[in-house]
Amino acid sequence: MSRRPLIRELPPTRWFLRHPRYLRYMAREVTSLFVGAYCVLLVIAMQRLSAGPVAWQEFLVALRSPASLVFHLAAMAAAFYHAGTWFNATQKAMPLQIGEDFVPGAYISGAHYLVWAVLSLVVLFVAGVI
């Protein structure tokens, strides 16, 4: 008897609708769009900064448009979601074995969260926000 197996193709453009875990994954991947766009804004900021105080002041004023505000909120959500998923993954990529046992993964991710919090507070302090 010959084999005649049934091949089921995965729909390439909407496979991620099958299960919430794939939507979560795609959300993580799509953060790159907003983070990347924000990086482009940072490149523009460097250009404005190098062009002198007037240009920089104009840049700061331009940031106050409603579109810019919405963009900042989206970028902030993306940056925080990226950070969370990234720190949660550190325990998978970099397990730490001391003696026989592995350090619990939560400690590894937790240490990253702690460093993140401290670093962010330092930046906010240096920038005169707090």
Partner: peptide, 28 residues
């Protein structure tokens, strides 16, 4: 990105809200 971008965007957001942090002044 994980370590730095959130706080950078927060600083930008403050500027977008009109509350430019002292650290984002031209001189600083």
């Amino acid at each position: 990105i994980a370590f730095c971008m959130p706080v950078i965007v927060v600083l930008g957001l403050l500027a977008a809200l009109g509350q430019v942090p002292p650290g984002l002044s031209y001189e600083s």
